[in-house]
Design a protein around this nucleic acid. Structure first.
Length: 422
RNA sequence: CGGGGAGUAGCGCAGUUUGGCUAGCGCGUUUGAAUGGGGUUCAAAAGGUCGUGGGUUCGAGUCCCACCUCCCCGACCA
């Protein structure tokens, strides 16, 4: 993609609406724009980051044996009355009446819908276990939306649901998801704490939260720097790590994932039952597993930035390489930029070419701000030596080499397998 | 919803205390010229319902009333 053909409205100054680091950088780097409080548009760079994150999630879910579905955002309120969560949700649920007089709501989550769906097709233990997931927009009329994508009224969630015939099956699926979550967050560049939590409105017995330490985080947590164990803050303990007796530290955190052993909370009220091997009717044992997909973007920025801008973890970077021809009025430079662009694209590398007639300083600033993993710089050094310059955004380290070597070097760097020495 | 802050050009702000005549500044934008490795320089230009409605006044960005919106702190959550 050429910079001039896409839409990257970078901001020189910080918009006054922003408070947290991630929101400032999201706005400045032209990833998102606010339509109203808690509601955001994703611009091309933001969309590509979102796509990368959903790709990672999809890969890990599929590898765990989960099958993807897409459930409706429009749901009958009646379904929520059946489950008894109509009142729990209260004002958070966005409700309206359609022209036929049907009471409708915009789904704040999907336990009810999926349970209804599954119950009409599962009747035997032979059909279990079942693991389904979706990546979809949720709607919540939040009391106070804030920090950009961190708490918004319309946001993207990955929600998975497991259906088992017994506790053993649930435990297995639960662990499967827990491990998958660790891989997902790690691939997204997040340093994550996993902590046992209160299931709250979701119900069930056991739940784990995945918390990302972040300066402005909404929750506080005690964690042990020694063994990376984490504990809820309100716990009146001796303030020592129960695992390694290390000193605990307090940190603000942001919740990016939450998994629950629901048990039969939904299946029993919605009559989702199956016949076991002995022919007796039993409620399906369920689990649910959520990830705040859009929230990962904010979390990733909180943990991966410097004073110049974002530093994307390689797998979520909107482009792998940004080519910077420093003087587009020079035909040799622009020709080399276009040639490099072609070579890299042919090798399957995603590339952005900054073809704007801007000065070097502007391009460098925007390049650093955008956080794209690698910059290929083509300027007067190229004119003098014929060599290209490769700069890694994270380390700032530079590699100067003949164009053949340098491009070959870059082509070998697939997402997830980026060169560590840069 | 309770408490605090804010709304003036695309963005960031000054001006409001103490009402005054053509509402300013920086950045960005357009045109021209120079420049071309870290937001360059010079010249010219365009761009405004001062959040909305009402009121006071000879006169309101400024004072009064009502409302809307945004941000921050609290309850909620991925």
């Amino acid at each position: 993609m050429y910079w001039s053909k896409t839409f990257i409205p970078t901001l020189r100054e910080t918009p006054q609406e922003a408070e947290s680091v991630s929101q400032k950088l999201l706005l400045r780097s032209g990833l998102i724009r606010m339509l109203m409080a808690g509601v955001y548009s994703y611009l091309p760079l933001g969309w590509r980051v979102l796509e990368n994150i959903t790709r990672i999630i999809r890969e890990e879910m599929d590898n765990s044996g989960a099958a993807q579905v897409l459930l409706p955002a429009l749901q009958p309120q009646e379904l929520w009355q059946k489950s008894g969560r109509d009142k729990d949700m209260g004002e958070v649920m966005i409700r309206f009446t359609d022209r036929k007089g049907r009471k409708i709501c915009l789904g704040p989550t999907h336990e009810e819908v999926i349970t209804e769906l599954v119950k009409s097709h599962i009747s035997s233990y032979k059909q279990l276990p079942l693991l389904l997931y979706q990546i979809q927009t949720k709607f919540r009329d939040e009391i106070r939306p804030r920090f950009g994508l961190v708490r918004s009224c319309e946001f993207i969630m990955k929600d998975a649901y497991s259906f088992d015939q017994d506790q053993k099956g649930l435990d297995k699926n639960y662990n499967l998801m827990l491990e998958a979550y660790k891989r997902i967050f790690s691939r997204c560049g997040l340093d994550c704490l996993c902590v046992e939590a209160d299931p709250g409105v979701m119900g069930g017995s056991v739940s784990h939260e995945f918390m990302v330490p972040a300066g402005f985080g909404e929750d506080a947590l005690m964690y042990c720097p020694g063994c990376n164990s984490a504990f809820p803050c309100d716990q009146k303990q001796a303030n020592k790590c129960t695992k390694c007796k290390g000193e605990l530290k307090k940190t603000n955190t942001l919740e990016v994932g939450h998994i629950f052993k629901l048990g039969t909370k939904y299946s029993s009220v919605l009559n989702a039952e199956f016949l076991d091997a002995k022919g007796s009717k039993k409620p399906i044992i369920m689990g649910c597993y959520g990830i705040g997909v859009s929230r990962i973007i904010s979390a990733a920025i909180e943990q991966n930035h410097d004073q110049n801008g974002i530093i994307w973890p390689p797998e979520v970077s909107p482009y792998q390489v940004l080519i910077l021809p420093l003087d587009v009025t020079n035909s040799l430079i622009i020709k080399q930029a276009e040639e490099s662009y072609g070579v890299l694209r042919r090798d399957g590398v995603s590339v952005l070419l900054d073809d704007r007639d801007e000065r070097a300083g502007v391009k460098f600033k925007d390049a650093d701000l955008s956080g794209i993993t690698y910059q290929v710089i083509i300027g007067k050094d190229f004119l003098e030596t014929g060599k290209l310059e490769l700069k890694a955004r994270r380390t700032g380290k530079k590699l100067i080499d003949k164009k053949e070597n340098l491009l070959k070097h870059l082509s070998a760097t697939k997402p997830g397998g980026f060169n560590s020495h840069l």
